[in-house]
Design a protein around this nucleic acid. Sequence first.
DNA 1: AGATTGACATACATGCAGTATGTATATTTA
DNA 2: TAAATATACATACTGCATGTATGTCAATCT
Lengths: 204, 204
Amino acid sequence: MAASGSATEQKQRIPNATRTERTRTALVSAARELFAAKGFAETGTPEIVKAARVTRGALYHHFEGKTALFRAVIEAEAEAVARAIETRTTEPASARDALIDGANAFFDAMSVSGRARLLLIDGPATLGHEEMNRIDRATGGAELIEGLAYARDHGELRDLPIEPLADLLSAAFDRAALAIDAGEDAEAYRTAIARMIDALLERH
Amino acid sequence: MAASGSATEQKQRIPNATRTERTRTALVSAARELFAAKGFAETGTPEIVKAARVTRGALYHHFEGKTALFRAVIEAEAEAVARAIETRTTEPASARDALIDGANAFFDAMSVSGRARLLLIDGPATLGHEEMNRIDRATGGAELIEGLAYARDHGELRDLPIEPLADLLSAAFDRAALAIDAGEDAEAYRTAIARMIDALLERH
DNA sequence: AGATTGACATACATGCAGTATGTATATTTA
DNA sequence: TAAATATACATACTGCATGTATGTCAATCT
């Protein structure tokens, strides 16, 4: 007899799919906070699983290891940034506006607590620049190159190899986000970025 | 009796000062190569002392720990870069030339094997940006700000907060050095940097 | 219903950073 | 110059973290 769910016993039957999702979410979520607060090297797996209320066995069942869990965190953050930017991108009146708007959307997205550290410090250090670039491209972080290509095609940018230029500009964006995150004057950095963009584009 | 150094015994008497210097040099030198090749986290102290032909006891006698040894490596590298740049700096004909020359000297100095990784990846990740800035300033890495200040004072740069601008430009320099180190087209990046500098300066 | 897979939990093996302690040599002091 | 002390290590030990091997129970497939 014994119905599979009496009012007192609550021995609820949980499907594997949701179980897995809950555990993975708990791990990624707990890991994100700890990695963001203390960094990758200074955060141990015992601490992570304790915060997530699971065991280390669960962690190693769902992820190949600590680094793989970190990668999942980074991918989620990169995804969130890409979504925030593409959501806020409207019809740009010009290449200049597109770049400025994109920069501001980027800074806003990067202002989420801990995100700058995760994506710009621990990410590259732990996964390497190569894999970070792969993740960025996979989540859709090619706006900068597109913006510069648009500008070049419309005569607003002298014909130069735009990929190195986009790379350098991207580095400046990252540094600005980091500086703002570190408490520097946000307006000063946004202005400086705008200045760089304007300088690079031809005057009309 | 027994002369303190027979021809066969060679029981040479070594003063503590030189002994210390030899050991420290051997440690810093061995650590530099290993950190440069495999990174800070992937290099263990047993491996370092083996390469340096000393024991871990010696390491912990001369340095507070693995991180302190790494810091010594980084300081030496930063010092070397600063020296290389200041040595090559001649009388600049203009702010533009000074910045371009400085950039090229920087890229040349950063092309020393392993240096880009040490100073631009593992350094910031292990010691933090704040301490890296401290080290840069201590070794004399203020050329960029000086160059921009000179340009502003001579009307070649619109009056804007130059510190954020110098910071962003410095980030671009770093990224370029990293890209070149990773095997990207060095000329393309040098050109892109020159383009950025020219763009930022007023046309004459 | 029985067999199999999935989702863990637990125990274990290994390696490393850091510390405590012991020893021989160099340096200082009486 | 002989004794006292400080220096420069070498060795042994501790604690912790990552990763692996194995065992168990519930969910799912046949």
